[in-house]
Simulated scan of single mutants.
Amino acid sequence: MTYLDLIIDLFKNTPRQGPGSTAESLQALALMDLPNEALTIADIGCGSGNATLTLAQNTQSKITAVDLFPEFLDQLKINADKVGLIDQIKTLEASMDQLPFEKNTFDVIWSEGAIYNIGFKKGTKQWRKFLKPKGYLAVSEITWTTNDRPKELNDFWNEAYPEIDTAANKIKVLEENGYRLVGYFYLKPESWIKNYYEPLALEFDAFLQKHDHSEDAKAIVKEQREEIELYKNYQDYYSYGFYVAQKIIKTPSSN
Rank of each mutant, 00 (worst) to 15 (best):
P70Q: 08
Q209S: 12
Y179W: 06
I164P: 00
D155I: 12
Y243K: 01
T105I: 07
R225N: 13
A245T: 01
D74V: 08
A38K: 14
D148G: 00
K132C: 02
P35D: 04
Y136I: 07
M32V: 04
A23I: 06
L137K: 02
L55M: 05
D33R: 14
Q60K: 12
L29H: 02
L208Y: 11
A30L: 08
Q60T: 10
D216R: 12
N177H: 13
D67L: 13
L26V: 06
G113Y: 05
F156D: 01
T22S: 12
Y231I: 01
D43A: 03
N158G: 01
D67I: 10
Y179K: 04
D81P: 00
P133W: 06
E227P: 03
Y196L: 00
N195I: 01
C46H: 09
A167T: 11
D107I: 05
K103R: 13
T59R: 09
A38W: 03
I41R: 05
Q75N: 11
T91C: 14
L99V: 10
D216M: 14
S48I: 09
N117V: 10
D81A: 15
K250E: 14
T2S: 15
D81H: 12
S253N: 13
Q27T: 08
Y116D: 00
Q88T: 09
W127D: 04
K134I: 01
N154R: 06
L153M: 07
Q126Y: 10
Y196T: 00
K77S: 12
K210P: 05
G45C: 08
G241N: 09
D43E: 04
S140I: 07
V66S: 03
E203M: 15
W192M: 01
L174Y: 06
D148P: 00
M32R: 05
V108G: 01
T143I: 01
I78T: 15
I78S: 13
E112M: 03
F185S: 01
Q98W: 05
I78N: 12
K134V: 00
N195K: 11
D87I: 02
K122P: 00
N233A: 15
Y186C: 05
D216S: 14
F106L: 06
A217T: 02
W192N: 00
G178C: 04
D205I: 09
Q57N: 14
E215S: 12
N158W: 03
K125F: 10
S61F: 03
A201S: 14
G241I: 12
L73A: 04
S61M: 03
A23M: 10
K151S: 12
A219G: 07
F204P: 05
E226C: 00
P252M: 11
L31D: 02
K151T: 14
T2L: 06
K170H: 15
Q75A: 13
I109C: 03
I109W: 02
T54A: 09
E71Q: 14
N195C: 08
I228Q: 14
E152F: 07
N50V: 04
T143G: 03
T2W: 05
R16L: 04
N58D: 01
I44Y: 08
D107R: 06
Y234C: 11
P15M: 09
I142E: 00
A168C: 03
L6V: 00
G20F: 09
Q88D: 15
Q209L: 13
I7L: 13
G84H: 10
